[in-house]
Nucleic acid binder design. Structure first.
Lengths: 195, 195
DNA sequence: TCCCGCATGTAAGTTGTTACATGATTCC
DNA sequence: GGAATCATGTAACAACTTACATGCGGGA
């Protein structure tokens, strides 16, 4: 039952439409949760039905109309309850881990290719998070912002996202290095490995 | 469709029963995937039905009989196909991130309590992974083992698990520090904050 | 005696993913 | 003219979680 709370948390700072939420919950701003549009539209409908959020229609001329949602008092109470409740720790779930676990028994060349793709992807997210953090803290140094800034929640979750992607990138790179070295049969070769 | 491949990967190095697999896929050895017993028994049945694994009954006197499974040639082929295929990157999904995202709007005291619990848990996993890695590499230094050891797959995934839990712990600790500092209203207070 | 570990499942319910559907506008 | 963006959904399926069920042996 965390998606509903993720939606509530996302709507705390600003009114958003389902479409805007969906963009945020896709790769990008969604440093703290991920969901597809379909899930979000369904969840928004449920949340509104239960009175945890309210929507208001915004008529637009040049584009389809949209509904902007905000959290109600009951919604805030629900978030409060959720925060107080104990929840179970989470695990990494990455297909690549499964593939690497089997690395000693399968073709490592394709595996290295998959890992390399992810290095690029991880780097892109790192850059994105870096930029996002800079925007959020403005002129302030990080420690100052965390101490005195308002709205440190999003900043903190973004920090977690950043360190996760950095750890991903570093592990992908190290794994590639290890697998490549092991693939080379003789150690006394001329330096033409290049890539 | 990654659970089936996780099971295949787990059965590569040793024959295991459903029960043993379940223990491995619970918190502990399962550095690369997580699943509950129910899921595993169901998946084992499917995999056997499809001929990707084979089971053999082991009769025991003092305990209930068990079935040990191992990967077949078709199973290995399936893993090979899976490894070659592109898969989508993964995201963190941690309830605590949602709670921290909402930190500016809810009671931070309970939140700090939840974070503190997780610090303990993360540290326990760190210790466990550390011990596991030492066992796997034996006398060898890490780099030597990664270069020359057999079966580096499990070692590499365990390394990822370790760094994930370290990053968790560090972030939990930093977040607790930030939230506590912000909770103190005046900066020129006598030093009785204690906890 | 009661609880824990071994050993294997079924059934029901909740989430999450994939595929499909619609229709206007703006950008290339 | 075609693709991308805005905007909202429905339907079907796959994955995951929670609850329940059974039964023996060993240790406190």
């Amino acid at each position: 039952m965390a998606l509903r709370h993720a939606v509530l948390a996302a709507l705390l700072d600003e009114e958003l439409s389902g479409y805007q939420l969906a963009k945020a919950f896709d790769m990008g701003v969604a440093n703290f949760w991920h969901a597809l549009p379909q899930q979000l539209y369904a969840e928004l409908a449920k949340l509104e039905h239960e009175g945890l959020i309210t929507g208001r229609e915004v008529v637009q001329e040049t584009r389809p109309n949209k509904r902007l949602f905000k959290v109600t008092g009951a919604g805030l109470d629900e978030l409060e309850r959720f925060t107080a409740a104990a929840t179970k720790p989470s695990f990494i779930r990455d297909d690549l881990l499964v593939k690497v676990q089997a690395a000693d028994h399968v073709n490592t060349e394709v595996l290295v290719a998959r890992l390399t793709e992810r290095i690029t992807f991880a780097q892109a997210k790192i850059d994105l998070f870096d930029a996002l953090l800079r925007t959020m803290r403005g002129d302030l140094a990080e420690e100052d912002f965390l101490h005195r800034g308002d709205r440190v929640g999003p900043y903190l979750t973004c920090l977690r996202g950043l360190s996760f992607e950095r750890a991903n990138r570093d592990w992908y790179e190290r794994t590639v290095r290890v697998l490549r070295e092991r693939a080379v049969p003789s150690p006394g070769r001329p330096a033409d490995e290049g890539l």
